[in-house]
Computed example of a mutant assay.
Amino acid sequence: MIPPLLLPDGMTEIVFAVLIFTSFAASFITVAFGIGGGGILLAVMATLVPPAALIPTHGVIQIGSNLGRALLTFAHVYWPALPAFAIGSVVGAAAGGAIVVSLPPAWVQIGVGGFVIWSVLSKPPKGLRDWPLLVGAISSFLTMFFGATGLFVATYTKSHKLPRHSHVATHAALMTVQHGVKTIAFGLLGFAFAQWWAFIIAMICAGFIGTLAGKLMLNRIDDRRFRLALDTILILLSVRLIYGGLRDLLW
């Protein structure tokens, strides 16, 4: 029996249980393979959470998930990647929040998916690692409409060619900053987080347990296998994004 306090209005116990398990699995996948959990969690939440609450609640949950991951791998964070990215995130979130009519989600999906596939199959631009402010601004602008831009940020992290532990740690730190800025923006725009806090905390706790389990897997794979797994997951998720965008446009 799940305490009623944890259930937002209209959410059943079965839906709650599915979302809790998904939060655990998403964090496990992200730590073990470097990316993918945020997109998976968003996809499941999109079918079970009211649209108006989807992006704001997903953002807060992702703060907890990424912050826990960053703290567990704190010694491996590549700090030079953060300052300019954080400034860009503020600019991007402010610009996104100022737009009343959102960008067509289908085009956002196709654009992000295509860019990520290109970055995996070809060498990222040599200067990508020198564009943290631009990457932060674009990804934070998109996350106000699309939610999970971890794929986009991963291309920036990947351009630094970091060892697997540093890649996971740095990406987690970058996403903590981005989701934090996004959550503040939604709060300023008037989203009422109050009735969702108990649910959000439960999801963050489940995600942290998944992070601990995923860290054990991360310690068992070498850099070559990690890179192969990372690229495979990036391509699969990008294909899913493009397919979803084309389906919305054509059907």
Rank of each mutant, 00 (worst) to 15 (best):
I20V: 15
R240L: 15
A26P: 08
R227I: 14
I35N: 05
V116P: 07
L216V: 15
I235R: 03
P104S: 08
F145T: 05
P4Y: 05
H165L: 07
L228A: 13
I235M: 06
D223G: 08
T30A: 06
C205L: 15
T183F: 12
I235T: 01
S89K: 05
G92Q: 00
I138W: 03
R240M: 15
G214V: 08
K123D: 10
G150N: 04
I138A: 12
G39R: 01
G88E: 01
L246Q: 05
A172M: 11
L241G: 01
A169R: 06
W107H: 12
S65R: 09
Y156G: 00
K215H: 13
P8I: 01
L6D: 11
V181W: 02
I2W: 05
V112W: 01
W131R: 09
F199I: 02
P104G: 06
D248M: 14
H76W: 14
V168W: 06
G37Q: 11
V100Q: 13
V91F: 10
T149F: 04
L7C: 04
T183K: 08
L41Q: 11
S159Q: 03
A206C: 10
A25I: 14
D9R: 12
G244E: 12
L121A: 08
S238W: 05
H165M: 08
T149C: 10
A17P: 02
A17I: 09
Q195A: 13
H165T: 12
L42T: 03
V60G: 04
I61D: 02
L151H: 03
A198V: 07
M175H: 01
A172L: 07
A98E: 10
S139K: 06
L134S: 11
W197V: 14
I99P: 01
P83Y: 01
A70P: 10
